[in-house]
Amino acid sequence: MSKTGSIITNVGYLDALARQDSPIHQLDPRAKLLTTLAFIVMVVSFDKYQISAMFPFAIFPIVLIVLGNLPAGYLMKRVLWVTPFAVLVGIFNPFLDRQVLLHIGSVEISGGWVSFASILMRSLLTVLAAFVLVATTGFNTICLALEKIGVPNIFVMQLLFLYRYAFVLAEESGRMVRAWQLRAPLQKAIGIQSFSILLGSLFLRTTSRAQRIYQAMCCRGFEGRLHPAKQLHWTMANTIFLTGFCLLFTVFRFTNPALLLGKLITEIFS
């Protein structure tokens, strides 16, 4: 189960990154969550042929990667490795929209290619922003922020439990699949019938585990609510971070500094 293994390793690594201590890590998770959301909304709000105006937005993930002491190479690899649905759908654009939009020398570039490039750009920026958020904040802290923002306690508990036991169950299912593989060396992947049975028994083991967990919780006084042991402190730095970046995004969104700069440069050189 190399796939399971690598997925779990990657999740674990993002978590390890989140346990560092940096100015970005110290920020309130709510500030990071809201800023990231604003970032994504701004980026996807561009028109489909827009590319240049998105470039300045790269400053946000770059600053966070550097100040947050994140490995840029690793993150870029992850971003590229995730081949999203977006690319699959976007690749049709060059075939459907063949109206020539731009000439560079004698090369004609159709609107479809421009909008496809725009989709790639959006994909890159939004995916990177999500990874950076997780790698500077950590899943559990994001959950804490969600709870403080007003997401129902049940849903937050659900997220925490899912995350905690995903590791345990991935190992368990990995062991089951390995046991299956050892007794079916000639088959490449599990057939549907054995898969259903495997899942069924995994489900039964899961429910009895859930029961034991519940008992363990009761033994320590659980009464239907998780009390977060960590407190959040909203400081001035958070306000500055949130408003500063949102302001910057707004300026980038409505003035297109890249175009202005480009004009300036091309005029200087002509």
């Binding site: 559990n140 439990f161 036991y165 320590r220 006084g221 659980f222 009390h227 977060p228 042991a229 960590k230």
Partner: peptide, 16 residues
């Protein structure tokens, strides 16, 4: 079952 060791050890006392 809690996300970190600290929070797990704190779970019981917080319920108290």
């Amino acid at each position: 079952f809690m996300p970190t060791v600290f929070e797990d050890v704190a779970f019981g006392p917080m319920n108290l």
